[in-house]
Nucleic acid binder design. Structure first.
Lengths: 240, 240
DNA sequence: TCGGAATTGAGGGTTTTCCCTCATTAAACC
DNA sequence: GGTTTAATGAGGGAAAACCCTCAATTCCGA
């Protein structure tokens, strides 16, 4: 396998961070990873909501399914279920496609089929997306893993910046009522109790909590409690 | 300013990821950033709360306060309140010390006083820590920013891997498994997902969570998340 | 005056979590 | 040996939380 000169790698990463178009990002990423055997590249953002984890695909490069079919979020998730594993991973991992058309996470990629390296990307509230690099004859050296991680981090951020614009700004602050409701949840109250306490209907409590989840972009109310505490939106009661 | 050859940079990052001691990490980081004018380096892990965000300092290098005083978590937080800004930042930022002994976040560092670059590090449950690089005459080129980001990410992960073993030795009210399960709940995962991640049945996940609730004496899991954060129990154990 | 947030509430569901009890295994400890 | 704790899992049912959409207020700023 070729080893790209380090200087050019750093230079490319720098360009990546300033790329002014998606095409540009694509070109630079491909130039970096193609020599290592990765001819399929896919970047996607994860949803805040649970079921389909693939929210939107920033871009896809190469023939992921070997039949020239295009890759949309649903297709990718259905046909490459290994993507689901980023929910259970704490870092990048290799996967291979097995003989029986299944996928498996492996410490080192072997065999002759399609295989790849998936890199989760994290942000202030947890998982934000992932980069998927695939190919049939891929380099899996430690140096390559590092390179792919760096490329994933820099390129993902650039993609999001280019495509989601200011939507990526840190979650706005919660409204007074939302904070109030969430505060009671964090204090262990059930919706019905909160409704009674605040003199509103249980439905309204639910609505506030859903707004909270959407606003700070998390999946569950428990996660919202955690995120709100981190964001300073919820003041923790002092220890007794 | 010197430009470190890219090849050596990548090689150093690779060494950093495999460093077998903290001294080693320190040496490599300093070798990388010193030529850019950063003679003060500090890595710390954050708490899950916003009030005291500095949980533990992995290591500190250089005379941060100009008086030779040592740097512990409390001192650092009190004397360098700019650290708080990583809570609202979405990425790295420069800061400078102003004439009136205050600190300010700036797009580009200017002036002759002490200034620095702070890089947050994120994981599955959001902010996990940060690296702080400081000096009086620092390079702030885009290339340098990139380098510092890469160094921070790789070195932080290595520090945590090397040091968090003894943090687990602290007396805890929750068992390892209970903390693990609760950590994933706080990260927004459902019981079924957690079960799959940990390779246990959904029933066992429920049991662990009930034990958590009983053990720390709360009514709901959301409250348990809040309480665990306060107790410093909320950590996603990483197996590297 | 118009558009946008905040706040309130409902209908009509589905999914997830939580509740009780009971049971097994493997360490750790005296 | 006994005892305690951690970790695992089950059955069965009840409660809570969650999902979608729609809609009426009020109030504030452009």
């Amino acid at each position: 396998m070729m080893r790209a000169p380090g200087d050019r790698v750093l230079e490319s990463l720098l360009q990546l961070g300033n790329a002014d178009s998606l095409d540009n990002v694509q070109a630079i990423v491909c130039r970096l990873v193609a020599p290592l055997g990765y001819d399929r590249v896919l970047f996607f953002a994860t949803t805040a909501q649970s079921d389909p984890i693939v929210d939107r695909i920033y871009w896809a490069e190469g023939d992921w399914f070997g039949d020239g079919s295009s890759v949309d979020a649903e297709t990718y998730q259905r046909r490459c279920p290994i993507a689901q594993h980023i929910l259970t991973a704490r870092g990048p991992f290799f996967w291979i496609k097995t003989a029986d058309h299944g996928y498996r996470v492996v410490p080192k990629p072997t065999g002759s089929g399609i295989k790849g390296f998936q890199v989760p990307v994290y942000g202030p509230i947890g998982l934000e997306g992932a980069a998927s690099f695939g190919g049939t004859r891929i380099d899996s050296a430690a140096r390559t893993q590092l390179l792919l991680e760096l490329v994933a981090a820099v390129a993902f951020r650039r993609c999001r910046h280019l495509l989601d614009g200011d939507a990526q700004a840190l979650p706005r602050t919660l409204s007074v009522r939302e904070r109030e409701v969430l505060g009671w949840v964090a204090a262990g109250r059930k919706h019905a109790e909160i409704a009674q306490t605040l003199g509103i209907s249980e439905r309204t409590v639910e609505n506030h909590l859903r707004n909270v989840r959407h606003r700070i972009g998390v999946k569950t109310t428990s996660q919202a409690v955690q995120a709100a505490i981190r964001l300073g939106e919820l003041i923790l009661p002092q220890e007794d």
